[in-house]
Design a protein around this nucleic acid. Structure first.
Length: 555
RNA sequence: GCGGGCGUAGUUCAGUUGGUUUAGAACGCCGCCCUGUCACGGCGGAGGUCGCGGGUUCAAGUCCCGUCGCUCGCGCCA
């Protein structure tokens, strides 16, 4: 507030938005009817005696005080301005509070917090490593940790029986909305525990934290833990190892129905004859949907590379739709039986080789749910976090590319049945004490009971085609540690950023970091990655051998 | 590496079937005016390589091809 005619008036009017001004003056009540109850500070004003412009802002590239919908590109380039916005402040504060809450809850359960090396060696996760050249050891490289996996296991062997860390992790694979090159995990490990004891320990931490911040968006959200899902059941019923259980549609196998002699649908029969399967999704009470409902789903399936999305709709006791005429009444009756169909329902079909069919059925399950009109009985449940542990992952899988047996997850996991199973079972029938925690279609955590026996470890790696020499060379450090007394142990790691993203109800991880790179893993604010000087390369004894079309500006 | 979407003023967007001399709007910016305003108001103004390159056409922001950038997804990755 400045008096009319004051020399300060003209100056005050020249201040641009986002300039930094120090004002000396008196805070006083607004006189008469000038008070404004709609403003938080509407009852008072500052009478300015003196004003100092500490930093006059140039014209800003986008508006800070209002959300003008500026694109992500420009927001990231001027992140320091973007971060001034109230919405960003709230999210960054949320991040702080969530981190503090998790740390407090872990410490209350007598876990100890650790830091582990950032410049380290490759760990057993399957992703590409970020590498850092060593100056002191020409030609050799450090790897940034994909996770502190081996360190936390060795801490177990050192007798620190309850470990946790808010751990930075690095993986050099292409990004997604929920995947970045660098991210943080609430990393946890305990010794002398069973899988269920780990769930029992970490679940209250995660649930308590979600509960604590469940009203962040302004709408209270429920938290619900669903019964454990076996991996195989998850793949069959939901077509995903990270199903969104807010979607209640389920997949069933109907291969038998389409194998019947009286069913003449050649498109499916041919695939079945080649070892394929038919999976089906019951969509309740949709037979009254317009034709476009089914047509849109069909073109969606085609856009996913499938021939289409066949269906039969049941109304007035009869099956309708393009496929129905190939499926005689007796076969339709079997379908109804298998899928639990009632009059008014429709059933959608996916036919392919098993793993493709599973995946496509999983995608279709979501597409059908998304297509349902608002308020439909099977529409995705709102304002709920549906958690679930997915358990009993297979220890090995058959790699179609290499035609070899491979670890399907973390190779340090303990095979269920131990040495006995490794020696006596078909490797593809062995399960691991390996589990994921999923929530609303996101994989929030992954974990395992670890293999703490060098003998079982050698056998387990042997089945995947890794000889003792390789094992020794790659993981000798930890293997040695096991030879001097290793307690049974296990743990898990929760993706911190994904949890923040869920609680903040944001569509991607970039929204919950103060500073973050874009989808191409470039930091436009700091100009990373960047060229380096010849001197730096020389120091590292590195010569570049770049693809032809890419030019570097390295001096 | 592959596929979908997007790309027009500083920002967010509109732009019809290819056709109105000079491509519009809002916010922002600049100037003047007003002054108890507070999403102030009024008048005026500047600001565009329609991502880039090529093509079709009498005529291209609009159609076609290529390319670049961003984004979502697939592959990859837990």
């Amino acid at each position: 507030m400045v008096d009319e005619g004051s020399s300060l008036l003209a100056e005050a009017e020249s201040w641009r938005n986002e300039s930094v001004i120090t004002i000396v003056g008196q805070v006083r009540e607004r006189p008469g009817d000038t008070a404004n109850s709609k403003l938080p500070t509407g009852d008072i004003e500052v009478y300015i005696d003196e004003a100092i412009v500490q930093s006059a802002a140039e014209i800003i590239p986008f508006q800070v005080s209002e959300d003008d919908g500026a694109g992500e590109d420009i927001r990231l380039r001027y992140r320091y301005l973007d971060l001034r916005r109230e919405k960003m402040h709230k999210k960054i504060r949320l991040r702080n509070n969530i981190t503090a809450s998790l740390r407090r809850r872990m410490i209350e359960q007598n876990f100890q917090e650790f830091q582990t090396p950032i410049l380290t060696a490759s760990s057993p996760e399957g992703a590409r490593d970020y590498l850092v050249p060593s100056r002191l050891h020409p030609g050799k490289f450090y790897a940034l940790p994909q996770a502190p996996q081996q360190f936390k296991q060795m801490l177990m062997m050192s007798g620190f029986d309850k470990y946790f860390q808010i751990a930075p992790c690095f993986r050099d694979e292409d990004g997604r909305a929920d995947r970045l090159a660098e991210f943080y995990q609430l990393d946890v490990e305990m010794s002398f525990v069973t899988q269920e004891e780990i769930f029992g320990t970490i679940q209250p931490v995660i649930e308590g934290m979600f509960e604590e911040f469940s009203e962040f968006t302004g709408t209270k959200r429920k938290i619900e833990w669903m019964p454990h899902l076996r991996y195989e059941d998850a793949m069959l019923k939901y077509g995903s190892d990270k199903p969104d259980l807010r979607n209640t549609l389920e997949i069933v196998d109907v291969s038998d129905v389409f194998s019947r002699d009286d069913v003449e649908f050649k498109a499916f029969k041919g695939v079945i004859a080649n070892g394929g399967v038919v999976r089906a999704i019951r969509a309740p009470k949709v037979s009254d949907q317009p034709r476009s409902f089914f047509d849109k789903l069909n073109s969606w399936a085609q856009s996913e590379g499938a021939p289409g999305l066949g269906y039969i709709a049941f109304a007035d006791g009869a099956g309708k739709g393009p496929i129905a005429k190939f499926v005689p009444e007796a076969a339709q009756a079997q379908l109804k039986e298998v899928a639990g169909l009632e009059d008014g329902d429709a059933i959608f079909f996916i036919c392919d080789q098993k793993s493709k069919a599973e995946k496509m059925a999983g995608a279709a399950r979501d597409a059908i749910c998304n297509a349902l009109p608002e308020g439909h009985e099977a529409a995705r449940e709102q304002n709920t976090y549906k958690f679930c542990w997915v358990v009993d992952f297979p220890m090995y899988e058959f790699n179609e590319t290499t035609q070899k047996i491979d670890f399907s997850h973390n190779p340090f996991s303990m095979p269920q049945g131990g040495m006995d199973d490794l020696e006596n079972k078909d490797p593809l029938d062995i399960y691991a004490f390996q589990y994921d925690c999923v929530c609303n279609g996101f994989e929030l955590a992954s974990g395992a009971i670890r293999n703490h026996s060098p003998e079982i470890m050698a056998k387990a790696f042997g089945l995947a085609g890794y000889g003792e020499e390789i094992l020794e060379k790659e993981f000798g450090g930890m293997l040695n540690a096991m030879r001097y007394g290793a307690p049974p142990h296990g743990g898990c790691a929760f993706g911190l950023d994904r949890m923040i993203m869920l609680i903040a109800d944001e569509p991607n991880l970039r929204e919950v970091y103060a500073f973050v790179m874009n989808g191409q893993y470039e930091d436009q604010l700091m100009s990373a990655p960047s060229d380096i000087t010849e001197e730096q390369l020389k120091d590292l004894h590195i010569k570049l051998d770049l693809p032809k079309e890419i030019k570097t500006e390295a001096a």
